[in-house]
Amino acid sequence: MKRLFNFNLPPLLSVGPAALFLTVFFIAPFAIIAVYSLMEADPFGGVRRAFSADAYIQFLFTRDWDGNLQFDLSYLNIFWRSFALAAGATVLCLAAAFPAAYYIATQPRRRRGLLLLLITVPFWANLLVRTYCWVLILRDSGLVNGWLIAFDLISTPLPLMYTDGAILVGLTYTYLPFMALPIYASLEKTDWRLIEASRDLYAGHRQTLARVVFPLARPGVIAGCIMVFIPSLGAFIAPSLLGGGRNLMIGSLIQLQFSSSRNWPFGAASALILLAFVLLLLYLWRRRSGRDGRDDGESIW
């Protein structure tokens, strides 16, 4: 007994508004940047109405004064750095969140509720503010340097800010709840008798973890990795607050093209390339997990 003929507003009324709204304000914009990425840049912002593949060529080549193309790795490097940082943040999040998620899932019901709420709050809290906290901690006059100097351990502040390390800490910190919640969700359904059974059969802690717990948690781990990796890859806040002007990531590169660099086609092309990566990743993930299309989970993902 699935679907009724009643309670069926005419589709024009129910599907219509959201479909129209999203087509105009969500799908059309993507069509437009696709077009923009194939036009000439206007140095005053925006584009000139002329076809050009420059935006894509620019990734691999620079044009020297004579107009010759030369192989140039600097943009590719930014992409590479972004992947490395996002992967690093994902690994760190996994390492930090897995034991915690496991521990929470084994707690009595009441306690679990509170522990879960304590992850849920930062999950929703403002990303900018949560990144800003690390500015307070890491900058030259920040908490770490301040205290190290106060205890005479160092005389000049350590250069903690504007490093890849700072970006990595910022990404890990901000996306940590995105890893913990999916892992918890998959472990919550676990039948803990399996683990007792495994211990019964003389599997050690480590073996139990590897052979029993990890496979059970795998869907959650994969979901968590996706949830951390994708936003890290496109991160803008962490690189621009903690990485300063020089340590760019894709996100800040794109933003720059639309502001000070005024190269919209290149920005549009970068955005589309990032989008392509993300969609590919999501496609692979969905094909693996082959989920059905109903939204009966409470989880936001």
Binding site: F25, P29, I230, F236, I254, Q255, A271, L274
Partner: peptide, 20 residues
């Protein structure tokens, strides 16, 4: 389409909307 904004990096949606 309804759920896509959850998964697409914000910066991409941002520049697309700006361009639009």
């Amino acid at each position: 389409t309804l759920l896509a904004p959850l998964m697409i990096p914000e910066i991409v949606t941002a520049v697309a909307t700006l361009t639009f």
